[in-house]
């Protein structure tokens, strides 16, 4: 009776994350990477689930342990991942989801699957911002493969434009913010607050320009910021710090450290403006 092709899941996690200045797939909330969260979510609902990677990413720490489909066409964005998946398993529909959508829940995806129209090329949500289809949380039927290839061969590699110009099932999102993605540290910080992430207590030290702008040498603060990058973003909002992260260094517990280090309660954190000794 059920003649629908089965659904495999594909997590898109190959992006360069330029605006985040770090690999978005590696961002952590609730103790797991975004990539792992997305993989587990799809795997609950799909027969099999894969992560989409570029050939240079197959061995990296957060990706190596998950089932992968490697892009064939490099440097063209999400369509490369969809195309590679369709080539590997041409008879299934693909539920494609980007790894930077922290508000997508099992309910969101079940809604998408329930309202799937297998007679169309794809089923997608309508963006609550501009009314256009959102390609990065959508189901691509097997029949869409030739359209994807056609699109890759053309000069236009935009998956959204493909959906706009195809016959698809377009759904209103059940929740206005379900498809909000996180492209910037500001959005990530907002996401952590909205998701109710646990806060930690930090001691922050301010020097020189920062000391003057914050009006204090140090302070104890509670925050959901789980990395120096997020903490700095929060402090920029609070104190109007204008120096950008690439102009600064960060120290945790009196050691130079990395912007993506996971902070824990009790850590002493200092941001180091451009130095001028001598």
């Amino acid at each position: 009776m059920n003649v629908h092709s089965s659904i495999y899941g594909l997590v898109l996690a190959g992006g360069a994350s330029r605006r985040m200045h770090t690999d978005k797939a590696a961002l952590i909330h609730d103790g797991k990477t975004q990539l792992q969260h997305a993989y587990e979510l799809l795997n609950k609902l799909c027969e099999r689930t894969f992560i989409s990677v570029r050939d240079t990413q197959t061995q990296d720490a957060i990706r190596a342990s998950l089932p992968q489909i490697v892009d064939v066409h490099n440097g063209i964005g999400p369509l490369a991942g969809i195309s590679a998946a369709q080539k590997q398993h041409p008879n299934v529909a693909w539920l494609v989801m980007a790894c930077d959508l922290p508000f997508v829940t099992e309910d969101t995806l079940q809604y998408l699957i329930r309202h799937r129209d297998t007679t169309k090329l794809a089923t997608a949500f309508r963006s609550t911002y501009d009314g256009l289809p959102e390609p990065l949380c959508s189901i691509w039927e097997p029949v869409s493969a030739s359209r994807v290839e056609e699109w890759i061969a053309s000069s236009n590699k935009c998956p959204r434009k493909l959906l706009i110009n195809s016959t698809i099932q377009l759904l209103d999102s059940p929740n206005q913010h379900a498809l909000d993605n996180i492209n910037t540290p500001e959005e990530h910080l907002q996401a952590l607050s909205t998701l109710g992430s646990p806060s930690i207590s930090l001691n922050v030290q301010y020097f020189a320009l920062f000391r003057e702008q914050a009006g204090k040498r140090s302070e104890q603060l509670n925050t959901v910021a789980s990395s120096p990058a997020l903490l700095y973003t929060e402090l920029q909002q609070r104190y109007g710090f204008k120096l950008t992260m690439n102009q600064l260094k960060v120290a945790i517990n009196n050691e130079f450290s990395d912007w993506q280090t996971t902070l824990k309660s009790g850590d002493h954190v200092a941001f180091i403006p451009p130095v001028a000794g001598g």
Partner: peptide, 20 residues
């Protein structure tokens, strides 16, 4: 503050590069 004041300009952000 030497090296700090004049370089404190927000860097521009890269947005979605094309219109639909």
């Amino acid at each position: 503050w030497v090296n700090c004041e004049r370089c404190a300009e927000a860097s521009h952000q890269l947005g979605h590069a094309h219109l639909h």
